[in-house]
Amino acid sequence: MNVSLATSCRWRDATLQDLVFFQRGYDITKAQQHSGNIPVISSSGITSFHNEAKAQGPGVVIGRKGTLGSVHYSAQDYWPHDTTLWSRDLRGNIPRFVYYFLHTIDFKRFDVGNSNPTLNRNHIHALPIKVPPLDVQESIASILCAYDDLIENNRRRMALLEEAARQLYREWFVRLRFPGHEHTRIIDGLPEGWERKSFNEVCQTVGGGTPSTTKSEYWDDGDIIWVTPTDITRNPCLALLDSEKKITEAGLKHSSAKMLPPNTIMMTSRASVGFFGLIDKAACTNQGFISVVPNEPFSQMYLLHNLMHRVDEIRSHAGGATYKEISKSKFKALPVVMPSLSLLRDFGEQTAELLRQIRTLHTMNVRLNQARDILLPRLMSGEIAV
């Protein structure tokens, strides 16, 4: 008998409720919450924090309504929201194993909602499954945790690198403690050599568009990166690697989408206003963007951080009844202080290097996620012996 078969023979027939017994979460509004460090976990993950827990950690939570079937893990005590089902009883199983095992189940096929996806625990508790002994559970959880630990470590490094760039911007251009500031005269409220301009004077602003969705030739087998606001808001850092959807040359030609040079500053301008991303390839966007192409390439990182620092101001200029949007004309009229060329170059070089490191870490995380997701079902089926 081969090793993997011998290992799988140790897995016993069971039902899902033998692995974990779920209970519906507890309703709580934002107004009812008080400042604390207890995570409130909804179907989309941690949405806020409260000062009271309803469940003891470690625990597992799955989306019951809304983001149906999403799986979340909490090492600490938590408040499972009404939109979730939470692990009232893990039946003595390894919590992390249960968390990973649940990723192998397509909960969406048990949707009983009409307009809003809904999951009923009574429809999943009787699911037939195979459960390994605790030593195998521990081994599987340890292998998969190693991937997640690397991913989390990289995520923290990316956050620190982005914060370092933001702090450098504040130090040089907000607090005015830039290199050589001690010997720089202030003239009309600005350091000597700095200028007041508008965005219309320092960059080109480019919009986007969406090809007709009824024309398959605009989408099928497309290889042109076409960025939507969702690509930006779901991205964990400034460095965007790809887009979820692609369009064809015909789609580009027959829409308002325009090709942008690599590392263009993409700023969401509609609904979710003021989110940013840069991709190191030529790309285009839908109409939910104002993309910024600096007239001077070395001012790119400065303009990016200037905009990020002024998000609240940018959003205050957005109008609209159905959804907020900042127009190109209002954006181009916004004032911007431009530092000396030498400072722009120095800042650009330092922060571009930080962005390069962020992109490398983000690429590594994508590959780690892919490797883990390939490994997970093979471990959970007993195909790979541990």
Rank of each mutant, 00 (worst) to 15 (best):
S4G: 01
T7Y: 03
S8A: 12
R12W: 06
T15W: 00
L19Y: 12
V20S: 07
Q23T: 15
D27V: 02
P39I: 03
V40P: 04
F49S: 06
K54M: 05
T67V: 00
T67M: 00
H72I: 01
Q76H: 03
W79K: 00
T84W: 02
L85W: 06
S87Q: 03
L90S: 02
N93F: 06
P95T: 04
Y99N: 14
I105F: 11
D111R: 00
N122W: 00
N122Q: 10
H125K: 03
L127N: 04
R155H: 13
R156M: 06
R156D: 02
A165G: 12
R170G: 11
E171A: 12
V174Q: 08
R177I: 05
F178G: 06
H183S: 15
P191H: 13
W194E: 01
E195D: 01
E201P: 06
C203T: 11
T210W: 02
T210S: 04
T210P: 02
Y218I: 10
D220Q: 15
D221A: 14
I225H: 07
T230Y: 00
T230N: 05
N235T: 03
K246M: 14
H254M: 09
L260M: 11
P262H: 07
T264N: 09
T268Q: 04
A283H: 15
T285I: 10
N286A: 12
G288N: 08
F289L: 07
S291Q: 14
V292P: 11
P294R: 12
S299M: 06
H305K: 04
H305C: 06
G320A: 10
I326K: 10
K330W: 03
V337F: 13
S340K: 03
L343R: 02
F347C: 11
G348W: 01
L361G: 02
H362I: 04
L368V: 12
R378N: 09
I384Q: 04
